[in-house]
């Protein structure tokens, strides 16, 4: 087992053990959630989830929570709402940010430095500063789109963009300038250079940021609660949070629902992760 890594350094037993222990520690709440979601309400009230793990044959495992969560709650439609919120809220900021990052890296225009410094500055401004004015602006006194998906798309796009522009621009700055220049000499317009060269070559950075942005948007509670509310357009995170408060619905359904809400982000993460690794290795070959 003890050998050397690809780069010739010796493997460290301490590092391996530390990593495994940390990974297990980080997974403990998720395991607890998974175990609890298969136990009945009475069992959960009577003993901790670890009891079920320690005596797996004495416990009555049940699928009733999942059946209840699917049949008796609005989780199905709110899961769909979450997808409707998260996909445009990931694609829009990345698309605009990629355009902007290209302009900041490869084009010359007046005020470029000042604009980029402004972007670096607003990157650290928390989103809360925009809520009160935006609620007014999007609410019935302003545009009247509060409670519709487009309001949430706007907010996530606006506040996702600074970090997206910054990350993508930093990545594009490492692309070989000669490739872009030779495209220019061959008569390619900026439009062609962007779609044929800059965007495909930036795929690792785009995939990495898309993963992060999707997870942030999916797990967001505050924006969804403020701008979509608890009505027909509610996302799954808000729906779960409301289940926590209502006594009649049953806390046992919450665990099953929470686990169901993790499925889609996991699919996104694992599919994009594979893509991300491939992008990185192909980037390494270029030298």
């Amino acid at each position: 087992m003890m050998g050397t890594m690809k780069d010739g350094r010796p493997r460290s037993l301490t590092a391996i053990i530390t990593m495994v222990v940390l990974a297990l520690l980080w997974t403990v709440p998720t395991i607890g959630l998974l175990v609890t979601s298969f136990r009945s309400r009475e069992d959960v009230a009577a003993s901790g989830w670890w009891d079920a793990l320690l005596n797996p044959f004495d416990t009555t495992w049940t699928l009733a929570n999942y059946e209840g969560a699917i049949a008796n709650t609005s989780l199905g439609s709110s899961l769909l709402n979450s997808v409707v919120v998260a996909v445009p809220a990931t694609v829009l900021p990345i698309m605009f940010a990629a355009f902007a990052a290209y302009a900041f890296t490869f084009m010359k225009f007046p005020g470029k430095e000042l604009l980029f410094i402004a972007i670096v500055a607003v990157m650290v401004v928390p989103i809360q500063v925009a809520f009160q004015p935006m609620l007014d602006l999007l609410g019935p006194r302003g545009l009247g789109i509060n409670g519709q998906f487009v309001a949430v798309w706007l907010l996530h796009t606006g506040f996702g963009m600074p970090l997206a522009i910054f990350t993508l621009r930093n990545y594009m700055a490492t692309l070989p300038n000669s490739v872009i220049e030779s495209a220019k000499i061959d008569g390619a317009s900026h439009f062609q250079t962007f779609w044929r060269l800059a965007a495909p070559m930036s795929m690792p950075a785009i995939a990495a940021f898309a993963t992060l942005q999707f997870l942030w948007v999916w797990n967001d509670l505050l924006i969804a609660k403020l701008f979509l509310g608890g009505g027909a357009n509610t996302t799954i995170i808000v729906d779960l949070q409301q289940m926590l408060g209502t006594q009649g619905l049953g806390a046992e359904l919450l665990t099953a629902g929470a686990f169901l809400s993790m499925v889609i982000p996991m699919i996104v993460f694992f599919s994009l992760q594979r893509f991300l690794v491939r992008g990185m290795t192909s980037g390494a070959v270029k030298g």
Partner: peptide, 24 residues
């Protein structure tokens, strides 16, 4: 509520200045 957020904004200003400086 807006006043509370202004406090948050003030807390962020030093980080903001630091961020711009390290970028430069």
């Amino acid at each position: 509520a807006s006043a509370i957020v202004v406090v948050l904004l003030l807390m962020v200003v030093p980080i903001l200045i630091f961020q711009v400086r390290s970028y430069k």
